[in-house]
């Protein structure tokens, strides 16, 4: 039993091998970008929106609203980043129901990559928002003694993000695989339904936490109890 799709090699060209994680990621990317292209290809203000455009507008406005509530600003670049995190993770987790499809998020490499992206994005957004000095200053607040703890806290965020997402998605897939062997007709369906719900919740949590981290780096007064979220 494979716990991660990284070990599933889809294509091998000499020393270069292409595993299922990357291929499935491309599939998710293709679905997202292709759907967006199809919906937004004929976008004019004088044309009434169809149901797909309305769906996308609802999703985008929901993301914008959630991010706006957290950051108290209407910064679009945060939405581009956090929204893409949510859409990618959500769609990957939803595709769990497709037989033979291993969600990229069930790969620790993917979740680590996403966590690293968040870890890199937080200082970048913070520096872009208030400058390098202000960003570095928050590591020694409230005193210089807190510097190692703040650094550890900064990295532990990324690690917790990565492990949380990986654990939830991988465990769902593993449990579904185990139950498929035990009771092949009933439990996998229930577990898949549960996996869909868990996947959406995890996507929401991952995106929200990323937004909170970015917001804490860009805002003057970072919100408290950010880590209390499941």
């Amino acid at each position: 039993m494979q716990l991660t799709p990284d070990q599933d090699i889809v294509l091998r060209l000499g020393d270069f091998s292409l595993n299922a994680t990357v291929v499935n990621t491309w599939i998710v990317m293709a679905v997202l970008v292709g759907g967006s292209l199809l919906v937004t290809r004929n976008l004019r203000p004088d044309v009434p929106p169809n149901r797909w455009r309305t769906l996308l507008e609802t999703i985008v406005q929901m993301i914008q609203s959630q991010i706006g509530e957290i950051t108290q600003t209407s910064a679009r670049h945060v939405m581009y980043f956090a929204g893409t995190l949510f859409l990618f993770i959500a769609l990957s987790n939803l595709l769990l129901v497709v037989p033979g499809f291993s969600p990229p998020t069930s790969s620790l490499s993917t979740t680590v990559a996403l966590a690293i992206s968040v870890l890199c994005a937080v200082p970048l957004f913070g520096i872009a928002s208030g400058g390098l000095g202000r960003y570095l200053r928050h590591f020694i607040e409230p005193s210089v003694v807190m510097l190692p703890f703040n650094v550890i806290s900064e990295f532990s965020r990324g690690i917790s993000l990565a492990i949380r997402l990986y654990g939830n998605i991988m465990s769902g897939a593993v449990i579904a695989a185990i139950l498929l062997g035990v009771a092949p007709f009933f439990f996998p369906v229930v577990m898949d339904m549960l996996g869909l719900l868990t996947g959406l919740i995890q996507a929401y949590i991952f995106a929200i936490l990323a937004t909170v981290y970015i917001s804490s780096a860009t805002a003057a007064d970072p919100p408290s109890n950010a880590e209390d979220t499941p």
Binding site: T21, V22, T25, W26, M29, L32, V33, T84, A113
Partner: peptide, 16 residues
């Protein structure tokens, strides 16, 4: 794979 996924994600951010 991590590096590739980071690149994929950044590309996806740009595309979306």
């Amino acid at each position: 794979t991590v590096i590739a996924q980071i690149a994929n994600f950044l590309v996806l951010v740009w595309l979306l």
